[in-house]
Design a binder for these strands. Sequence first.
DNA 1: CGCTTGTCTAGGTCAACGTC
DNA 2: GACGTTGACCTAGACAAGCG
Length: 398
Amino acid sequence: MATKYERAKKKGGGYYTGVYYYESKTRPRLHGHPDRCFVISYKVDGKKRWEKIGWESEGYTPQIATEIRAKRIRALRHGEEVKTSRELRAEKRKTNRTLEEIKEAYFSSNKGQSIKGRKTDLNRWDKHLKPLVGAKRVSELSPFDIERIKKAMADKKPATIANALELLRRIINFGIKHGLCPSLKFTIELPQKDNEVTEYLTEDEARRLVEVLDSWPNQDVARMVKLAMLTGMRRGEIFKLKIEDVDFTQGLITLVDPKGGKTEHLPMSEPVRELLRDQIAWAKERYPETQFVFPGRGGGQRVDCSAVERIKEAAGLPKSFRPFHGLRHHFAVTLASSGNFTLDMIGELLTHKDTKVTRRYAKFLPEAKKKAAEEAARLISENVDSSSTGKVVTFKLR
DNA sequence: CGCTTGTCTAGGTCAACGTC
DNA sequence: GACGTTGACCTAGACAAGCG
């Protein structure tokens, strides 16, 4: 509907240039006349533009409107971009997108396209986050929403909940970084998880495993497990291993794009050398075209190996023992407890990027452990002796 | 050095495969 | 063609690197 604009009149006569108003039929009357909304008009690139300034009841006057208009015109003259309040509002909406929109932007960004866990993350979003917060904007998000997510996932392990919330946080952080939303007014607290496991095999279990492997009908799979056992290589590294990555002359195995991203080299021991030679021969015979040492169906890269589960069963290993990663732990623990390797060397062989991870094997170092225990005992008994006159220390040493 | 971000594995399920 | 074995796929969950 067309609202009639009146030119704003000056008290002394004449008009305010480019300042207009229209009167409201619904707002409460003011000073005996209808409330007035001031509007200014100016030209942008030769086109006339109207901009609402505000209501008289809100304190706006023709003078204020004139000032704003002057500011606009000055800015335009200097080539600055001039935004109307409507545009500013639209812009604000743009910088406060829904989480669904931000998630979309995140996953279609260059970075989002290439993260390796993309599929997993998308699944987390669809399953745990989208139903509860997908339609929300970051500005509307409250700690209560986080609680709701946690509640909905109550039957899951803390690690899973943490993974989902972490993704939510990552998406929000992306939105903030790219101006798609304001920053979050509170922090998302992730549940604490205490799930560190260090598993290893007893001598007996290791022996049984080797026996089963030796007699396993499918030696392809058996060799794969043996390789894990002898080198502590990760499952993925074994799957990805190409024939060209095995250098028999130098005695080196090249790990391309491993967990840390940087190519690594592993020395090849004699049993490993033999094993790989057999395996490569097998692979070439089975799939003449394959590039992989342990090819999957059709000679492509193997993606999985459920046979190891049955090997584990056949060897009577504990249910909780994880075939590949468990062997990696076993490798590290065996090395550590032999006392012949430093933690640094073990970390090197496992291609750890950070000693923090290797350090968990410290407890298996017999020498260091013994020394530490003796040192502790010495300190404590000294303390007991020196304070035996006092009455603070009441425990007895055996 | 702890928090944040990213990557990999486990385990269940089911279809494809290979063998007889 | 029946049947046991294996590989692929999916989601939950753990592990590891990055970073301030």
